[in-house]
Design a binder for these strands. Structure first.
Lengths: 357, 357
DNA sequence: GTCAGTTGATCAAGCGTTTTAGCAAAATTA
DNA sequence: TAATTTTGCTAAAACGCTTGATCAACTGAC
């Protein structure tokens, strides 16, 4: 009666803080079941070549249930020497919805293989990044996913090399010593253009970004590839450049209209969103007067513009998942350089369906 | 020369996997420095009442540097009995940009106090949720943040009670046994309405959502509060309801125009986005013909509509941060029920500035 | 020269597991 | 019945670290 209630002081009156004095340990379970800790451990881990009497097993399991035993992962990991953690350092969880998708993909895949995600958000701060990686190393993570919110080249921080790591959505020029997984911008650009080609368009403008990035080159390359495949000559005149946001798209309207095209492929959805406004102000309707495709598939935007925007998905979820698989050695990098993940086309109403063959 | 290279087999030829044979331990540092492990431990942890000769300290630090020693967090935690982890279980990292903000806020605040974030994304799957919480308990987390992507009532999973926890962006009807932090919807609604009132508007419509939620009631209450404070009688006729997305906003245009108002407050930014289209089709311009405010401050939308949308921020970052503070007992819940976090107004061009006094 | 105090460092127990080697009893074989 | 094998379980070391108890060597004080 006396030792029943070890009240842990002032915390007790705050809702949500109940009495969680001392966690149940293996030893206590063992005592309760009248066996050794070794036996309990064997029961818990279902070792195949462990010989446990059915009756004993039952007794142990009952004790576990009764006491509400939870294994201590710390102790487990101490013994095994490595944790079931995968670290994810991201430079922009906050900035965009994109990072969330990478996290989600990584989390799902990691979970599937019994790993938990340890995340750190650095927002580009180098010191924070160093601390975050150090923390992960101290927790003996299985490996680290180093991700950026937009596809770009990056330097691999020195400390990262103390662990197994995979670059996600970024790559190192020095690709011999690092594994990386990135979106396939060229294929994406090709798919985007193909949507328009399938719509029967032959004279297609491309509003590219002004900002240098792998995406800038890749998406342009894809555009050229698609045209070439259809035997359409590439006309540099049809390629404009603008800042990659709504304003940029809006601002490019005038120049675009001079090109006398029936369709336009925008570097990203945000530009397309701005362009919608510009076209509308000029009394043009989409897709009747001009067909539009974007890139990125930003749900909030693309799916809900009027008309909904055809676009190409940046496979952030897949990037996260593929990163984990590569880290765990499930996906072997095939060939040289970063592994490229496909950007699937998402067709919506901003391009009319071509009825003729 | 011989034991120099312990090549760990086939992994060695994969970029990113280098030789990380055996991590350096305390003992090795101790040997290198010619002291006991106890001494090294004391040096590392800078114990104030530990007496260490300056010379010894130097020797130890040098050894640490030379060997590239990293403490093993698992072992540390085993001893201390509790980890430096805070768990965050979220039901929708993927679904919206919102969860990302909660993560970000929690992460920053946790980090500030020496904690790392262990996240799990359940996407609403109950089994996953149970496993996730179990995992966190096994890692002896300091506590768990249980968050939802939209503000709502929720049941507290039983296992959650085995740990310290705080509900974030949700609350339990049974608020006596749980701590919670949620956005202050009523204040937010009031702020949104006030933006319009300050713009000189007196006859203001409110397009509420059709979906029942704390936000529905709170945002309406705020609207009424603001009107009342200005001595304007609440007119139920001015309150419409629609599905809370672009389509809903667009679809409400017709009804709205019949109300003959000079301003409209939308339940959220997405509705406002749809409404923009509807108003434009009717030849109305914003803010000249009609002023608009939204709610949520979804960056991709609000900041980039034409004109940019005045709105009210859902303080997701703050929710995450406040959740951590409450968990750690830094913010004591003041009074009854969930702690409410302010939703700050964000004024943009969709409401004209009122020049007269 | 003895005693007390201070300084600098070590010893050893313990945190909660896993796991190998080994032991006693039961079952099988001869 | 004795020898052998199988079965069921345990002892104990190890994982890498922290920390209170100890201890040896000095330093002064008297």
């Amino acid at each position: 009666m006396i030792s029943q209630e070890k009240n842990s002081g002032s915390a007790a009156d705050v809702p949500g803080i109940t009495d969680r004095a001392h966690p149940v340990t293996l030893r206590e379970v063992a005592e309760a079941a009248g066996v050794s800790t070794a036996t309990v451990s064997l029961v818990i881990n279902k070792k195949k070549n462990a010989r446990i009497a059915a009756d004993t097993r039952k007794r142990v399991q009952e004790a576990i249930r009764q006491l509400g035993y939870r294994p201590n992962a710390m102790a487990k990991n101490l013994v095994s020497g490595t944790s079931k953690f995968i670290g994810l350092v991201a430079d922009g969880v906050a900035t965009t919805p994109f990072a969330g998708q990478i996290i989600h993909g990584a989390q799902d895949e990691a979970w599937k293989h019994g790993y938990a995600l340890l995340i750190a958000n650095t927002e580009g701060n180098v010191d924070l990044e160093k601390d975050a990686i150090a923390m992960m190393l101290e927790y003996k993570v299985r490996g680290i996913l180093y991700s950026t919110w937009f596809h770009r080249a990056t330097e691999v921080p020195e400390t990262l090399r103390e662990s197994d790591f995979v670059l996600v959505n970024c790559f190192s020029p020095d690709s011999l010593t690092s594994r990386a997984v990135v979106p396939d911008e060229a294929q994406g650009g090709k798919s985007a253009t193909e949507i328009l080609l399938r719509g029967g368009h032959r004279r297609i403008a491309f509003i590219n970004t002004t900002t240098p990035a792998p995406a800038k080159d890749g998406r342009l390359q894809g555009y050229r590839d698609a045209l070439e495949a259809e035997g359409i000559a590439f006309d540099p005149e049809l390629v404009l450049e603008a800042y990659p946001d709504q304003e940029g798209g809006y601002g490019a309207t005038g120049e675009l209209l001079k090109l006398n095209v029936s369709a336009v492929y925008c570097y990203n959805d945000r530009m397309a969103m701005g362009l919608y406004d510009g076209l509308r102000e000029n009394g043009l309707s989409i897709p009747e007067d001009i067909a539009v495709v974007g890139f990125d598939n930003q749900e909030v935007i693309a799916a809900h513009l009027r008309p909904p925007l055809s676009t190409v998905s940046l496979p952030h979820y897949e990037l996260g998942a593929a990163g984990v698989r590569m880290l765990l050695g499930l996906d072997r990098p095939s060939g040289e350089g970063p592994v490229k993940i496909a950007c699937p086309a998402v067709e919506r109403a901003s391009v009319a369906v071509h009825s003729a063959a």
